[in-house]
Computed example of a mutant assay.
Amino acid sequence: MPRPKGAVTLATVASNAGVSIATVSKVLNGRSDVSSATRARVQDLLAQHGYVGRRPETVVRESVELFYQGAVNNYSVEIIQGVVVAGQAAGIDVVLNAHPRHESSATDRASRWIRELIAGGRRAAIGITSELTDADLAALARARLPLVVIDPANIPEPDVTSVGSTNFAGGMAATQHLLDLGHRRIAYLGGQPTSGCNQARLSGFRSAMEAAGASVPKNYIWQRDFLYDDGVAGGTVLLDLPDRPTAIFAGSDEVALGVMEAARARGLRIPEDLSVVGFDDTQVARLASPPLTTVKQPLREMGAVALRTALRLAAGETVDSHHVELATTLIIRGSAAAIACE
């Protein structure tokens, strides 16, 4: 059949097919209430006429839910990029959403959340440093929706799959670097005590200090959160001690920058008067003044591993371990220096 001149409309296709415009519209929208013979006839005519609607037909792609709690910061941006790039490679859409920590009814909120995920066609869920309730875990299990958590904010159940880094080894490396520079009065300023990654970094700190025979006064440990304001608050307390530390190992780069600001407010120079080591190696570490010595977490790769693991679980495959740890590396820059004397 020759293609008519001018713009092709639904009315043209409907007239040639001997059906209503509504039927053509149903075929375009993938509706099921059209007979197979009519559908085939309409689709052939659409192709012959080269019909292009106002919008191309929607292509439904598989997706995963990537959720977080609190503010998006440099740490989470790196992980998000890793998940998204891995999703693109796998042909999977990544949908980013905030996941609130508290509501009046945890069970109702969890059930509502899962219903939304299922309605959205999610194959799996990935959480970034998220604190999940028992209700969340139970609802995910009932829906058989795989879950992978990156650096969980609370200690996960043994069967919850998680991805992290060698936090203990990183904590040891950061502390050993300060010890090698001659420091013995070293404090730790980290995240919430219930956080698994925080516990591991603190344990690495304590292990290195104990091996060196260096004592850790109780007031040299400050645990609040991994944010800049917590670094300022904790740094203020630690640096106002009568016997203040000469070095601080911060549990994140943001905390380290907060400590550096608290030091500057007191007229202390970095690294001449105070050495600071961070954790993460986000962009702010490189932009700090002086540039921050820090423990590098492979954040983008952690995100990619989480995405690939979630897809394996969604496909019914088994994983070798419920917890994957990627190697950390100490990056030496300018915020820590040797101490002349103790």
Score class of each variant (00 low, 15 high):
G87S: 08
R112V: 13
L66A: 03
L287R: 05
A153S: 15
M1G: 15
V52Q: 14
D230E: 02
V232P: 00
T294L: 00
D44Q: 14
I331V: 14
S275F: 05
T328K: 07
L132S: 05
T107A: 13
G190H: 01
N167Y: 03
A98W: 01
S215E: 15
V319R: 02
Q81K: 15
S289D: 09
S76T: 03
A47H: 13
L46W: 06
R184L: 13
I114E: 00
S130N: 09
G278K: 01
R101K: 11
K218H: 10
R269W: 06
F226E: 07
E261K: 12
V85D: 06
N73E: 13
G190Y: 01
Q43C: 11
C197D: 15
P156T: 01
N219H: 15
C341S: 15
R122G: 00
M1V: 09
A119V: 10
L287Y: 13
A125C: 13
S63G: 15
A174R: 02
R122T: 09
S130G: 03
A17H: 09
P242A: 14
G191N: 11
A200N: 13
V149N: 04
I92H: 00
T329H: 07
A153N: 09
L268V: 03
I186Y: 00
V259I: 02
A250G: 08
T175H: 09
S165G: 15
T293E: 05
V277G: 02
G53N: 10
R308W: 02
V216C: 02
R54I: 06
P56R: 15
V27H: 01
G171I: 00
